[in-house]
Design a binder for these strands. Structure first.
Length: 801
DNA sequence: AGCACGCCGACT
DNA sequence: GTCGGCGTGCTC
């Protein structure tokens, strides 16, 4: 007997394994691995969506199995590769298998459920009024607790019955079309044969005869503009025409394109392309790190190596961070590869995503460009994977499954025996260190394609500014530079670093930031307790009244908002046209693109924004880039603070002087001597890498150590704390002496949604028993007395707060 | 998650 | 005595 192993849609620890189901005889020829099915589950026999992950032979079983109720898909939605990937993902991120399956597939594939009440005894006296009707009633999502209790009682009394329905949200969009199954001649013949009085019918047939020249069908929608609905109805009645519902794929990319040919390569680019092509040709799962300054032509290297994969009749996957931010990039890929390109990103509607996904699944799209989740694109026979801006933090998903797209890409590249190309001007330290060790192959592109010099970067010491200038946010140098641009009708981009707003304490005289004595990490300000806390080890101290370094009393929390700066700017330059871009002004869909376009069209003189303006913008008329506060990220309680600051400043500096005119960059800071700022000024990534590696080495941080974060939360604070300590007890025996455990400590925002959070961070190099221990902890904490306790594990977290 | 079973307190 | 509260365990 064949048995189907099914992962059911119940995301809890206890059901995180396949369940066996009988395959009814009628389904035997249809059933396959990777299909979605409907199964009945639990005592109430409620219907759930499930995924067939395996089909096995099994001899007669002692307890009878439930049969599969229904098959949802005709073709498997998951390839064997993606099935394996979901298993690997679940194991490596400590997430439920079902959650991983749902992450891999487009959102519409997730089952939606309805609870329907059928009334069995319509004349029952205490029947609630809303049930006193003939038809079954669909319960809405928010049925009150007491209401539900009453309904359960009625069910027990046999008055009503529940029915669970599973819906497939994945709908194929169709449009009605008149099929042109006959030749033009036969249509005209039919028209001839019609009696004279059917004038409109004759006209219709003549019209259709003309269309047969270049199509198999005509949309009803277009015909309706020429003929009325009743004409079509008559024609249909007389069987002169047939109408079918044809699928229309929601398309994301335009129909037309300006085809673009490959560009000439510089020697460095040529070398890089050759090295990558060699891996593609020889089916080597090598990882390359392309380290190229802004404007060095990384994109051209990507495009040409992707072309190589296509030439070998393979597919290509290209990951771009937050794709909405770089429409130029998508455009360029489209111009090169045309209709075989599919785009996947969060800006698409569910339906659009589904259609693009199916074009990939059906093999119609061989090139995929997309953001983080596109790493799961159902491509087969992948010849190359590209990951642009590999250092970007948006590649890490912040909620379950907490995966990093880079790791998924590495896994898929290994499966497909194809190269993975990581590209960045400022690679993550993890990747650059791996290249150093020879795990990845480093390909450097040190020169700019157009030979343009890097913009001149000037650093302004804001500590001096306080005395000289009354406005705190603008130095004389920056305001003068803005005035010059306004006079010359050139544009300025001003960036306000909002990360870490008001959350740390800094001395305005010397730039000193209070750090944890144990962890060498900035302390975070907690206004509720009026203390400074370390989020790593839990160290706590009072807020200093005087700067411990220079004894000034100008030590206070630090931060500035975009609105305030905009007001200041407007006062300084009443005639300047300013576009402000922050979370508030870009919340609406499409607002981001609209504002950028307005700026690109020259409708404003100054673009003021948060870090979102640092990425990928390319406006030739921008000759000044100002960073109003370079420090805020440095103050974050995060060992990656320097790295983030360096990356951000380097990136934003690249926005200046993209066109023919020379660019200038002004960075305002209270830490002018900080290496991250100094090295951003000289745009010297390699030196930054060496300096920062040293610091990481001394502090036992990545990439010298791996990290894992265990967080637990409970509505009751003492329970959360107690749980954290029992987790610690469970953890310790599974670790060697060399592992470093930090915490348990309360998280920065101790209470979110009425839950208290505690966390433990483990730093380690080699811990063979760690994964097993973590699984054990997950299993135990589910069964323990802590019913309300939630526990999460984040491998290599990027956010430690 | 959702359901049943089962064991204790306050009601007809 | 029993109704119903929720704590506990199971779902092919």
């Amino acid at each position: 007997m064949k048995i189907a192993k099914v992962i059911v849609d119940v995301p809890v620890m206890q059901t995180n394994r396949p369940f066996d189901y009988e395959i009814p005889r009628a389904m035997t020829p249809l059933i396959q691995k990777g299909l979605r099915v409907v199964v009945s589950f639990g005592k109430g026999n409620r219907l759930l969506q499930g995924y067939v992950v395996d089909i096995v032979d099994k001899q007669a079983v002692s307890t009878p199995l439930k049969p599969i109720v229904d098959i949802i898909d005709l073709e498997p939605v998951l390839t064997p590769e993606l099935l394996e990937l979901s298993d690997w993902l679940a194991k490596s991120t400590y997430a439920f298998r079902i959650t991983c399956l749902q992450t891999i597939l487009p959102g519409v594939m997730r089952g939606s459920y309805d609870k329907v009440v059928h009334v069995l005894q319509p004349d029952y006296p205490q029947l609630p009024t809303f049930l006193k009707q003939a038809a079954p009633v669909v319960l809405d999502d928010q049925v009150g607790k007491s209401e539900l209790a009453a309904l359960l009682k009625l069910r027990q009394a046999g008055v009503i019955r529940f029915e669970y329905q599973v819906h497939n949200k994945a709908k194929i969009k169709t449009q009605r079309a008149i099929m042109l199954s006959q030749s033009a001649e036969s249509l005209l013949q039919q028209a001839q044969a019609l009696p004279e009085r059917l004038k409109k019918q004759k006209e219709l047939l003549h019209y259709l005869a003309r269309q047969t020249a270049d199509a198999d069908f005509v949309w009803v929608k277009t015909v309706q503009s020429l003929f009325s609905a009743s004409v079509l109805k008559t024609a249909l009645k007389h069987q002169l025409i047939t109408i079918k519902a044809l699928e229309v794929k929601r398309r994301v990319l335009p129909d037309k394109r300006v085809a673009e040919a490959p560009r000439q390569l510089l020697p460095d680019q040529k070398r890089a392309v050759a090295a990558i092509d060699q891996a593609t040709n020889n089916k080597l799962a090598k990882v390359f790190l392309v380290e190229g300054v802004t404007g060095s032509g990384k994109t051209e290297v990507y495009l040409q190596t992707m072309q190589r994969a296509l030439d070998l009749n393979k597919s290509a996957l290209m990951l771009v961070p937050e794709i909405a931010l770089t429409p130029q990039m998508v455009q360029r890929v489209f111009q090169r590869f045309g209709n075989q390109v599919a785009v996947l990103h969060s800006g698409l509607s569910e339906g659009e995503k589904y259609d693009e996904w199916r074009r990939i699944r059906e093999g119609k799209a061989k090139v995929v460009v997309g953001a983080r989740s596109a790493v799961f694109a159902p491509l087969e026979n992948i010849g190359i994977i590209i990951m642009d801006e590999e250092h970007e933090y948006s590649y890490k998903q912040e909620d379950t499954p907490r995966y990093h797209a880079r790791n998924v890409a590495i896994h898929r590249a290994a499966y497909h025996h194809c190269p993975l190309v990581l590209g960045s001007a400022t690679p993550s330290l993890e990747s650059r260190a791996r290249a150093q060790k020879g795990v990845y192959q480093l390909l450097r592109l040190p020169t700019r394609v157009n030979q343009a010099p890097l913009p001149k970067v000037q650093i302004i010491d804001m500590r001096e500014n306080i005395e000289q200038h009354q406005t705190l946010d603008f130095s004389r140098a920056l305001s003068d530079a803005i005035s010059v641009r306004l006079a010359k009708k050139e544009q300025s981009v001003l960036m306000l670093n909002r990360r870490g707003f008001s959350s740390f304490v800094m001395c305005r005289d010397c730039g000193y930031v209070v750090k944890c004595p144990n962890c060498d990490i900035s302390l975070t300000l907690h206004m509720d307790t009026h203390t400074l806390k370390c989020h790593y080890c839990g160290h706590e101290e009072p807020i200093p009244k005087k700067c411990p370094n220079c004894h000034s009393n100008k030590i206070r929390y630090y931060g500035t908002g975009t609105e305030k700066v905009e007001k200041e700017l407007q006062e300084m330059y009443p005639k300047a046209r300013i576009i402000r871009m922050d979370v508030d002004t870009t919340r609406k869909k499409g607002a981001y693109g609209r504002l950028l376009k307005a700026f690109g069209d020259g409708q404003a003189d100054i673009l003021l924004g948060t870090q979102m303006i640092a990425k990928g913008l390319d406006f030739p008329n921008v000759t000044l880039v100002g960073v109003i506060n370079a420090d805020t990220a440095l103050g974050l309680p995060d060992f990656r603070a320097s790295e983030r600051t360096f990356q951000l400043l380097t990136q934003v500096a690249g926005r200046a002087g993209r066109g023919a005119k020379k660019g200038e960059v002004i960075i305002q800071t209270y830490n002018p001597d900080h290496y991250a700022i100094q090295l951003a000024k000289s745009q010297d990534y390699e030196k930054f890498f060496r300096t920062e590696m040293n610091i990481r080495h001394q502090g036992n941080y990545p990439p010298y150590y791996f990290t894992v974060r265990l967080a637990c939360s409970d509505p009751e604070e003492n329970k959360a704390a107690k749980a954290a300590f029992s987790i610690l007890k469970l953890l310790q025996p599974g670790l060697s002496q060399k592992a470093i455990i930090l915490g348990p400590s309360p998280r920065a925002i101790a209470r979110i949604k009425n839950r208290y959070y505690y966390q433990i961070i483990v730093k380690y190099k080699q811990e063979p028993k760690l994964a097993q221990t973590l699984d054990h902890i997950l299993n135990l904490t589910q069964k323990s007395n802590y019913r309300q306790l939630q526990i999460s594990i984040d491998q290599e977290p990027l956010q430690f707060m």
